[in-house]
């Protein structure tokens, strides 16, 4: 069970399929890595199925299914998609992330901090993978909009707690935070933000111009 689950309202939005692409990607990774979130989304989908069946008055019961399946024996069935191939170095990537990676590689931002920017279509969220070497941190910053983080490898700690693989964090709003990667493997996380973050503290004034032409 995740110590930091995604909030229920986001799991509901995800289960009904209404989230924009960026947040939906974050939720899909959380759900892939967290059995509790998977159960919740599974139950909500079952609720959706039951409501669909009831409201449209369709009989989607076992008998109807058996009948359809029997009649379709002659129709070619697409083989179940094989698990996506992951490039070497990206073995940690859950299936829903793989199509976004393409041939992109890590870009160094500054010491011990690298990123891969992912592009979305028709969604204004900024989405990136961050990789922090153990013991390294991001500069103190605060958020001006919603920010979602999902840990995919390793872990990090900030003033709100410790986050491990599968954990989901909602940006602390106007509060400042300074995440530091835990010892062990480098910390890899997917970050989804609505608008650029604002750096505060000593490095802030120096780094904020960087944020204006592209987020870090």
């Amino acid at each position: 069970m995740s110590r930091h689950p995604a909030p229920d309202e986001l799991l509901l939005d995800y289960a009904t399929g209404v989230l924009p692409e960026g947040p939906a990607l974050a939720l899909s990774l959380h759900v892939a890595l967290d059995p509790a979130a998977q159960r919740t989304v599974g139950r909500l989908t079952a609720v959706g199925g039951a409501l669909l069946e009831g409201e449209v008055g369709a009989d989607l019961g076992q008998a109807a299914l058996d009948q359809v399946m029997a009649r379709l024996d002659s129709v070619a069935v697409e083989p179940k998609a094989p698990p996506p191939r992951r490039r070497s170095g990206f073995e940690w990537a859950p299936a829903s992330l793989v199509p976004y990676l393409g041939n992109k590689g890590w870009k160094r931002v500054f010491g011990g901090f690298e990123q891969i920017e992912l592009s979305l279509h028709g969604d204004t969220h900024r989405v990136a993978l961050l990789r922090l070497q153990p013991g390294r941190g991001l500069p103190v910053h605060r958020h001006v909009a919603n920010e979602y983080t999902v840990v995919l490898q390793g872990g990090y700690t900030d003033n709100t707690g410790n986050y491990g693989v599968g954990d989901f964090a909602v940006g602390p709003g106007a509060n400042e935070h300074e995440p530091i990667a835990d010892p062990g493997e480098p910390c890899i996380a997917l970050i989804v933000v609505e608008k650029p973050i604002v750096l505060t503290g000593v490095w802030g004034r120096w780094l904020n111009p960087l944020l204006r032409w592209g987020w870090m």
């Binding site: 989908t45 039951a50 669909l52 989607l60 019961g61 109807a64």
Partner: peptide
């Protein structure tokens, strides 16, 4: 999953 869930 039930058929209805799957179709949903």
């Amino acid at each position: 999953a039930s058929a209805a869930t799957w179709i949903y």
